[in-house]
Amino acid sequence: MAGNRKFIHDHSAHCESGVMSLMMRHHGLDLSEPMVFGLAGALMFAYIPFVKLGGMPLVAYRSMPRAIIKGLQKNIGITMKMRTFSSVAKGASALDNLLLRGEIVGAQTSVFWLPYFPEEMRFHFNAHNLIVYGKEDKDYLISDPVFENPMRCPVKDLEKARFVKGVMAPKGLLYYPQHVPSSIDFSETIPRVIAKNAKAMLKTPVPIAGIRGIRMLARTIGRLQRKDLRYAKLFLGHIVRMQEEIGTGGAGFRFIYASFLQEAGAILHNAALTDASEMLTQVGDQWREFALMLARAIRAKTGASIDFVNLQTKLETVADAEAEVYRKLLGTVGRT
């Protein structure tokens, strides 16, 4: 379904929720980035020590890449067309055909190969999302939601970025909506998605996800004293990057979700959701304090001057406070 309006770029905190918000708005469904994030049930925490990315264990504050697209599809009744390609040529011509039809197209890319990213931000991360909304000469017109302004990217470079191999390889993934409802029954949808997300955080069967995942990470930090100092510091830095650097809107998506709860509270005239939003904002502030403590530890000259147990205690406090928010949410939106 090609939109009939001119595409409007906007600055978002996170790539995937930003892309989906821009795309929904283009197709006439006004959903903010926090609403997209919340309705997709994308808030998470996972610490998976046996999955390594760039030599560091996986630490995630949100659900898997593509989970926002898929979650939104499942929860609010949009239909997305998602296509991957067996060759660069097929992927490139499919994109060009969609653009000729007037479609704005979501694409999964690798950050490292996008020339408009500054050198300092280029790492091998293969699940970066952006919108291609046009083509001029040898450039694609790009709306990358984590940048303030629209960008241009040479055709060859975008092809490279779409077809890198490796973990989470995009395989040229393109996506666009085939059906977007004109409105959503929020009174039914919002309680359901909040309850589901809160349950996922509180009642995980595995110790590496949700609140239990946060506690497991805390214990790992407490044991870092025994590790090589360089590794210990890189590990702490890695946590800060996953929480703040990768475009989370601050505090590892906790502020985005608090914004969603606030908006949801206003839509449903539910004061308890507004209260939960304030609680989560405070939890987010604690996550930021934790990040600050980690940054100080990275700067410490000697291992002896880093109090790892203190870091562990702080993170356990954060886990307690966050669990409290989910319990309140479950009490509010009921047992659906």
């Binding site: 890189l234 830095g237 890695h238 800060v240 990057r241 930021r288 940054a295 990275i298 700067r299």
Partner: peptide, 10 residues
Amino acid sequence: EVEEIATKQA
């Protein structure tokens, strides 16, 4: 600054 420290470290 906290983010800068972590990025620069990496």
